[in-house]
Amino acid sequence: MPPLSPDSLSLDSVVAALRSAGCVFAEDEAELILSTARTLDEAAAMVDRRVAGLPLEHVLGWAEFHGLRIRVEPGVFVPRRRTEFLVEQAVALARDASLVVDLCCGSGAVGAALAASLGGPELHAADIDPAAVRCARRNVAPFAGRVHQGDLFAALPDTLCGRVDVLAANVPYVPTEEVGLLPPEARDHEPLVALDGGADGLDILRRVAAEAPRWLAPGGCLLVETSGHQAPLAVEAFARGGLVARLAVCAERYANVVIGVRP
Rank of each mutant, 00 (worst) to 15 (best):
T176W: 02
C135K: 00
L34N: 09
E84Q: 13
L56V: 10
V91K: 08
P184K: 09
S107E: 00
D7H: 09
D165S: 12
A125Y: 00
T226K: 11
P213T: 06
L181F: 10
C135Y: 09
E27M: 04
L99K: 04
L243Y: 07
R137K: 14
V47N: 00
V100L: 05
F153V: 03
P191I: 00
T39H: 09
V78M: 10
R134Y: 15
A141W: 09
A245P: 01
R246M: 04
G111V: 02
S227K: 10
L4N: 07
L68I: 13
G120K: 05
A113E: 00
Q230G: 05
W215F: 02
A217E: 02
L182Y: 11
P263G: 15
R146D: 04
A113M: 08
A109M: 07
F238A: 05
G75K: 06
P79Y: 06
A90N: 10
A154V: 00
R95N: 05
E42C: 02
R163N: 04
A251H: 13
A126G: 03
L247R: 14
G119V: 05
R81C: 09
G241R: 02
A136R: 14
A237F: 07
R81Q: 10
C135G: 07
G201R: 07
A132H: 06
R206D: 04
S35I: 08
A109I: 09
R71I: 11
A115T: 08
